[in-house]
Simulated assay, not measured.
Amino acid sequence: MDGLRSALRALLPRPCPGCAQPLGSAAGLCRACCAGLHPRLERHSMLSNAVTPHLVVLGEHKAVLRRAARELKYSGHRDLAAVLGQAIASGVPSEWKLRAVSAVPMSGIRQRQRHFNHAEVLARQVAAELGLPYQESLKRTRHTTQQAKLSGEARLSNLIGAFAAQSSGLMVSGKITQTLLLVDDVMTTGATLKACRDALAESGVNQVFYAVITR
């Protein structure tokens, strides 16, 4: 069935997921939608007490970006990762002095359902654009209810003990990565990124920065 879907996608013209106009020779998003990708730096009190920005985001979860994030996540259009990853990477400050890039991991059950981890595909593209290694620094220790179905404190409690750092994925040049960029698709309350950061901090990572498509 997956092979048939892939064959049909290759044969049928695909509209731009951002504006529904024909993609033509463009990949991922049409040229007009690509021109509207402007990364910005923000801060989030749940993720850091520092006054300096520590989050790269392409925009709010609406319009073009919302549709593009959904297409990448649920429809398997990996070419979107190249476009979005390039835009995200262009907004990462050199002052962060990053050593590696990692992604929010997906549970085994969910990854088997979707056949790939969209956050990892995006993170690998960001890493390639920045000339940094991609590291599998985290793993899911248990399957959790989808965060989108929860609200408020339930999001935090849902993720208690859900992530653990992988020591083999924290090493760069024989040493624990001290400064890491963590990539995900969408940030709502920041609970998922915070849970990942806490797991990384317990394993010796000093500084975590973040990058998402939408907030």
Results as ranks from 00 to 15, higher is better:
Val186Glu: 03
Arg140His: 07
Ala164Lys: 03
Ala103Thr: 14
Leu180Asn: 12
His143Cys: 12
Ala191Ile: 02
Leu122Ile: 05
Arg43Asn: 00
Ala154Tyr: 05
Ser137Thr: 06
Gly28Trp: 06
Thr179Lys: 09
Ala69Pro: 03
Ala81Arg: 00
Asn206Tyr: 10
Thr145Trp: 01
Thr177Asn: 06
Gly169Arg: 01
Val183Ile: 06
Val64Glu: 12
Arg112Cys: 04
Arg197Ser: 15
Thr179Ala: 11
Arg142Asp: 08
Ala35Gln: 02
Gly59Glu: 04
Ser157Glu: 15
Ile88Asn: 06
Ser137Lys: 03
Arg9Tyr: 14
Val64Gly: 08
Glu136Pro: 09
Leu98Ala: 08
Val51Asp: 15
Leu84Gln: 02
Asp79Arg: 11
Gly85Asp: 01
Gln207Leu: 13
Leu156Thr: 11
Leu37Tyr: 00
Asp198His: 14
Leu72Cys: 00
Pro15Ile: 07
Arg142Ser: 10
Ser45Tyr: 13
Ala199Arg: 04
Pro105Thr: 11
Lys175Glu: 11
Ala26Arg: 10
Val183Met: 02
Ile213Ser: 06
His38Trp: 12
Ala148His: 12
Thr144His: 03
Glu95Tyr: 01
Lys97Ala: 15
Thr189Lys: 11
Ile213Gln: 04
Arg40Thr: 12
Glu120Cys: 10
His77Thr: 04
Glu95Met: 14
Gln147Ile: 04
Ala68Tyr: 00
Asn117Val: 10
Arg197Lys: 12
Val92Ser: 05
Met187Lys: 06
Gly85Arg: 04
Leu8Phe: 06
Gln146Arg: 08
Leu156Trp: 14
Arg99Ile: 10
Ser6Ile: 13
Ala165His: 13
Ser25Cys: 08
Ala123His: 03
Leu181Ile: 05
Val205Tyr: 08
Ser75Tyr: 14
Gln166Trp: 01
Gly76Asp: 13
Glu42Ser: 03
Thr189Glu: 05
Gln147His: 04
Ile176Val: 07
Ser90Pro: 09
Thr144Asp: 11
Ala195Ile: 02
Arg9Met: 14
Ile88Ala: 03
Gly85Trp: 01
Cys34Tyr: 02
Gly24Pro: 14
Ala201His: 12
Glu129Lys: 07
Ser48Ala: 13
Phe209Cys: 06
Cys16Gln: 01
Cys34Thr: 09
Ser90Met: 11
Gly3Leu: 07
Ser168Phe: 10
Leu47Ser: 02
Asn117Tyr: 06
Ser151Glu: 14
Val186Phe: 03
Thr192Met: 07
Val172Ala: 11
Val183Arg: 09
Glu202Gly: 14
Lys149Met: 09
Ala195Phe: 02
Val104Gln: 03
Arg110Asp: 13
Gln86Pro: 05
Pro53Trp: 01
Met106Asp: 12
Ala123Met: 03
Met187Cys: 06
Leu65Ser: 01
Gly59Asn: 00
Gly28His: 00
Val212Trp: 06
Asp185Ser: 10
Val126Asp: 07
Gly108His: 13
Val56Phe: 04
Lys139His: 14
Cys34Ser: 06
Ser94Asn: 04
Leu130Thr: 09
Arg112Trp: 00
Gly59Ile: 00
Leu98Trp: 03
Leu193Cys: 09
Ala100Ser: 08
Gly161Ile: 08
Met187Pro: 05
Thr141Gln: 07
Leu170Lys: 11
Leu138Glu: 05
Gln111Tyr: 10
Gln147Cys: 00
Leu72Gly: 00
Val172Gln: 07
Ser45Ile: 15
Leu150Ile: 02
Gly91Ile: 11
Gly36His: 01
Phe163Leu: 13
Arg112Tyr: 07
Ile109Val: 13
Gly161His: 13
Ala100Pro: 12
Leu23Val: 14
Val57Gly: 07
Gln178Phe: 10
